[in-house]
Measured scan of single mutants.
Amino acid sequence: SELMNSSKLIRMLEEDGWRLVRVTGSAHHFKHPKKPGLVTVPHPKKDLPIGTVKSIQKSAGL
């Protein structure tokens, strides 16, 4: 199965306009000026399962 580095996923979010608002432990929480909701990324993780990545991307509207 495909894995993604959390840094790469965070870069994709930031390029889309998401900004880090809070860190709780290894959970990084992002908000967007125009899009609704809060997106949480486990970080640092070298090997996020593709299912997790897809669900984060979906929440972020990517």
Rank of each mutant, 00 (worst) to 15 (best):
S1E: 10
S1P: 12
S1L: 12
S1I: 12
E2H: 11
E2S: 11
E2T: 10
M4E: 05
N5E: 14
N5H: 11
N5D: 15
S6M: 02
S6H: 03
S7Q: 10
S7Y: 15
S7D: 13
K8F: 15
K8D: 15
K8Q: 15
K8V: 15
L9C: 05
L9G: 02
L9K: 01
I10W: 02
I10L: 05
I10Y: 02
I10T: 02
R11K: 13
R11M: 12
R11V: 10
M12Y: 07
L13G: 00
E14V: 10
E14F: 07
E14T: 09
E15T: 09
E15D: 13
E15K: 09
E15G: 08
D16M: 05
D16C: 04
D16N: 07
G17N: 05
G17C: 06
G17T: 01
G17W: 02
G17V: 00
W18S: 00
W18V: 00
R19V: 13
R19M: 13
R19C: 09
L20T: 07
L20D: 02
L20R: 10
L20M: 09
V21S: 07
V21P: 00
R22D: 10
R22F: 13
R22V: 07
R22N: 08
R22A: 12
V23Y: 07
V23A: 14
V23P: 04
T24E: 11
T24L: 10
T24P: 01
G25L: 11
G25R: 15
S26D: 13
S26P: 08
S26Y: 10
S26E: 12
A27F: 15
A27G: 06
H28V: 13
H28D: 01
H28Y: 07
H29M: 14
H29D: 07
H29P: 01
F30A: 00
F30M: 06
F30L: 05
F30P: 00
K31W: 08
K31H: 12
H32R: 01
H32E: 00
H32V: 00
P33A: 11
K34F: 14
K34I: 12
K35R: 05
P36L: 08
P36S: 12
P36V: 08
P36N: 07
G37E: 05
G37C: 06
L38S: 07
V39Y: 01
V39A: 04
T40S: 14
T40N: 07
T40R: 13
V41N: 00
V41T: 02
V41L: 04
P42F: 04
P42S: 05
P42G: 04
H43C: 03
H43W: 04
H43L: 02
H43E: 03
H43S: 03
H43F: 03
H43Y: 04
P44N: 04
P44W: 03
P44L: 04
P44D: 03
K45T: 07
K46P: 13
K46I: 11
D47F: 14
D47C: 12
D47S: 13
D47E: 14
D47T: 11
D47L: 12
L48D: 01
L48V: 06
L48R: 01
L48Y: 02
P49F: 05
P49V: 04
P49Q: 06
P49A: 11
I50T: 10
I50S: 12
I50R: 09
I50L: 10
I50K: 08
G51P: 06
V53F: 04
K54W: 06
K54L: 09
K54G: 05
S55K: 13
S55R: 15
I56E: 02
Q57F: 15
Q57M: 15
K58G: 06
K58A: 14
S59F: 08
S59M: 14
A60G: 04
A60I: 06
G61F: 05
G61T: 03
G61Q: 08
L62K: 03
L62V: 06
